[in-house]
Design a protein around this nucleic acid. Structure first.
Lengths: 186, 186
DNA sequence: TTGTCTGTACCGACTGGACGGTTTATATAC
DNA sequence: GTATATAAACCGTCCAGTCGGTACAGACAA
């Protein structure tokens, strides 16, 4: 039978949103099929109809976030249009915002993918595209990858809750990154 | 009764070495109490006698690695004695070596700690000591934390197997880091 | 010097619960 | 009437942790 609530529509999307909301609020271990089904207002069967395995679900979540991330980058590029390295500039801005607002999602998703790197494929695809964009926009790649790697460090140490830097320290790092980005441009 | 093999000795150490060896070779999901016990030549009961819970075992493993890491830093500091920022310099060197030689251990341990940040406490303690050392050796902390964060990025992206950088890219990053370290000194 | 007692180190079968996935039945839409 | 979608009970496995027991090494006394 169809869902009690009657609607059919974009079940996958509903499920993903509910699943992300669930892990954000209840933490990584709460990401069980039963819990996600309940949170999304689906039965387990309905959930598994849409995502045939837990891995598929996680991949879907990663894809969702990766899409969001990429969209934010694109948007931020507009603001950085005058920069000679707009992609990298946008990445700095988006990472900054992410750490402030999406940290809990990153924290929640990371354990689910930690022992299965292949589940991060959608994000990898985005990163590869960004990498190519950066290669096209600067010749000083050593410095560019250095900035890139620093962003990854900020992201992962926050996502892992293992940062020893204070908020002020992190602000200083972002300032340093933007300085170096400007030097890159000149 | 004592172990079948007769020896008693430093059981904890034996277990930790065996456990680290196990995850390195068989991957993170292989880290079950039964598997560790067998790998170490203990029964499950014997294992749990030495480490009363799986969390305790993982903490022990982290502590083991953290101690090794800190010792390597101390050793590398000797080589960097002429630097004005010997600690940061040593961290660059050790991280470089780690990525080349201990990457698989990092990869193996990370999932075990991913959803329980508190298990990384021993490593955090080491990092806090290093942070204090760096604070004492430089005034340009923004740049120092930037380098530090970049090292974390290198470490985590490798540990997570999500790096999109090539070996050459990474070499370029290390070169950039060492350049910036020199600038920091002047 | 033998017998008892006690603490330490270790063994391994077992349990209990969690959880991914299956199955079967069924409703709706085209 | 077939494809799509959903429900809910059920199954099987995996695995952390429990628990009753065993082997040995002193300690201490009679």
């Amino acid at each position: 039978m169809p869902r009690a609530s009657g609607k059919k529509q974009d079940s996958k999307h509903e499920i993903l949103v509910a699943a992300l909301d669930l892990v954000r609020k209840a933490g990584p271990p709460a990401l069980t099929l039963d819990a996600v089904a309940e949170a999304a207002g689906f039965s387990k069967g309905g959930l598994l109809y849409n995502f045939p395995s837990k891995d598929a679900l996680i991949t879907g979540m990663v894809q969702f976030l990766a899409g969001q991330f990429e969209a934010e980058i694109e948007a931020a590029k507009q603001n950085a249009a005058n920069s000679k390295a707009p992609t990298l500039s946008a990445m700095i801005d988006v990472t900054d915002g992410w750490i402030r607002q999406q940290r809990d999602v990153a924290r929640a998703i990371l354990p689910a993918t930690a022992d299965k790197p292949e589940l991060t494929a959608p994000f990898m695809a985005v990163k590869l595209r960004l990498k190519q964009a950066i290669e096209a926009e600067t010749t000083n790649l050593g410095a560019a990858w250095s900035i890139w790697t620093c962003l990854e460090g900020l992201h992962f140490s926050e996502a892992h809750s293992v940062s020893v830097l204070s908020d002020d320290d992190r602000i200083a790092v972002f300032k340093d990154l933007r300085n170096r980005l400007n030097e890159l441009n000149n």
